[in-house]
Design a protein around this nucleic acid. Structure first.
Lengths: 346, 346
DNA sequence: CTGTTAGCGCATTCAT
DNA sequence: ATGAATGCGCTAACAG
């Protein structure tokens, strides 16, 4: 057996090599390699032996060119370190598993300019469909996506003017519901903790929903702390809650833009000896594992990130299948449910 | 302007279309599209106009075939929901940013059989290099990787018999160091909390390091709780610590296989009124954000997951560049540092 | 600086 | 059930 250090630098074997070794044509090899091909069991076996002997691996690159099917699907998420979008990515992965499709994943870093560059570079691979996060995009991104002629799905949001399909929910409505929930519990001086810039449009929508609810309920306005650039971290959640309390000592509840910041805020409260929810109630967004496990457990909005990915993946599969048959399915708007999860922190 | 609903179903424009519109040959278009190509500014401008007008996007699939460079790099990680490996993925992403290389990411789910399938399907895209997690693989995985003739990097571990390059550290040595650290603090009845199966070889190595240290220090053995299949969750960490305490009430410190389980254990202690570190000390592994922010903050082993990715990415870039020039760089073994971070939980 | 020729490795289409 | 011819869209190599 060859030592593993003298690994080949030459190009790998081709289908023609396999065909020659098996004594058949390349076409027969091609058919033998895809399941369900019309091949006699005998020749298939011969071919498989040749494949093993040569260590042959199909070159999809070439296949793509001639079949005009790349087998790629792309998904763009803001970040992969937020378990939120990681779950969505997992949902997509699971949906396309065993379909022969490959996921090309990209991180936009919450920047629509980066999204634009990513879309362009991804289209270069001729994906058969694409899933993006959010409903705000650069103009050119929209143009590129429309011109690509492939199914497009926007997620995690309800865009005013969707590109094509949508799988999401209203971040504003969800946060609004959370504030009303806190109101129902008796809280009257409700603050908001979020990131600074408007990079994170979902964060901005949540703030909007908060402001609307405050307005509707006639509660004191302006108790908003903006801290750090999104995604706001645990650490920053801790700093933000300290600011909030020192600026408006009468605040009795804090709505945080995500469970991460809510958790950071909660731990800071522990540290400072502020009872939660006695002195101040804390609520988050996202129903992350950390919110379920912390002490006290954190009241939050649950949105099934995994399910968003799964649903988007399934929808994309349908659209791709239609597209392969020359059809096109009508634009779909899938509203995903959210709900307030009441826990010990409020 | 065409409405966005009547999106084209026809195939996108080709380089030939651009060439015709610009009145040049396809070769000139090709050169204009890669920066640094020998092109007069005038023709380049003409071509770019044609590109814009047609909404042309380069088809890398075809380029790959003729240039024999896919521009792909693959990375296989156990899971993307562990912030650990997400950080490594981010490090790789950052390392290859602006190199024209594209990351193909796959999740093995901690299963070497799934890794095997992934390797095979990824090789189908003719990646120029591959980064895998850990040092244990299926035999066929090793064979496929060796036969692929591309640079291979194993990470997060120090394999006994590396395939080629390694960027990692010894999980056993790190955990061993942590136990010695706890010993130094005066703890004598040290337990271990980890997952059940041996799917997670890094987890198994950590347990091994724990056992070795216990042996070396002459401490009471066997205080090990195995709970849930890896990656062990926060929730399971909580359950595990309860088991540990009920089974060996004399335990005064718990080493957890990861910060996630350590955090879950910590919160369970809060819940049950066990003072940390007064009644029991808790230590984790990985230096996750949650360990830095929790109350009390958790003693842990810090390994720079991001840096592992970054270093592996850089190394891979070197190897790929060499490979493109027909050279091969000698197998490298990069030992990444780890250190015990003493915090309030011990 | 630009064009011509050739071919990458496979799947489609049409034969047989 | 198998084979032959053809071309996918691009870039390498060479020519001018």
């Amino acid at each position: 057996m060859a030592s593993e250090t003298d690994r080949p630098l030459k190009s790998p074997p081709t289908m023609a090599d396999v065909a020659e070794l098996a004594g058949v044509s390349t076409m027969t090899v091609s058919r033998a390699l895809k399941k369900g091909g019309p091949i006699s069991e005998k020749t298939r076996r011969k071919i498989m032996n040749a494949v093993d002997e040569l260590g042959y691996v199909l070159d999809q690159t070439a296949g793509t060119l001639s079949s005009k099917r790349s087998g790629f699907v792309v998904a763009l998420v803001p970040s992969i370190n937020s378990s939120n979008f990681a779950d969505t990515a997992r949902g997509i992965t699971e949906a396309i598993e065993n379909t022969g499709l490959q996921l090309l994943l990209g991180y936009t870093d919450y920047l629509i300019e980066k999204e634009e560059r990513l879309v362009e570079s991804m289209l270069t691979r001729r994906p058969e469909g694409i899933i993006v996060t959010g409903g705000r995009h650069a103009d050119r991104t929209r143009r590129l996506l429309s011109a690509a002629g492939i199914p497009v799905i926007e997620t995690w949001d309800i865009p005013d003017n969707p590109i094509e399909h949508v799988v999401g929910f209203s971040n504003a409505a969800a946060t609004n519901a959370l504030v009303h929930h806190l109101y129902g519990l008796g809280y009257r001086n409700i603050g908001f903790v979020g990131g600074t810039s408007n990079r994170d449009t979902r964060g901005a929508d949540r703030r909007l929903g908060y402001a609307q609810a405050i307005e509707q309920l006639g509660l004191p306005r302006g108790r908003v702390i903006s801290f750090g650039k999104p995604p706001i971290s645990m650490e920053q959640g801790g700093e933000a809650i300290a600011h909030l309390m020192s600026q408006w000592p009468d605040v009795d509840a804090a709505v945080c833009v995500s469970d991460l910041s809510a958790f950071g805020a909660l731990m800071e409260c522990h540290r400072r000896g502020w009872a939660v929810p006695g002195r101040i109630a804390i609520a988050g967004f996202g129903d992350f594992e950390v919110a379920r496990c912390s002490f006290p457990r954190i009241t939050t909005i649950s949105v099934d990130a995994f399910e968003i990915g799964r649903a988007a993946g399934d929808l994309l599969l349908n659209a791709i299948e239609a597209s392969r048959e020359g059809r096109r399915i009508p634009p779909e708007l899938m509203l995903m449910p959210f709900k307030v999860i009441q826990r010990e922190s409020t």
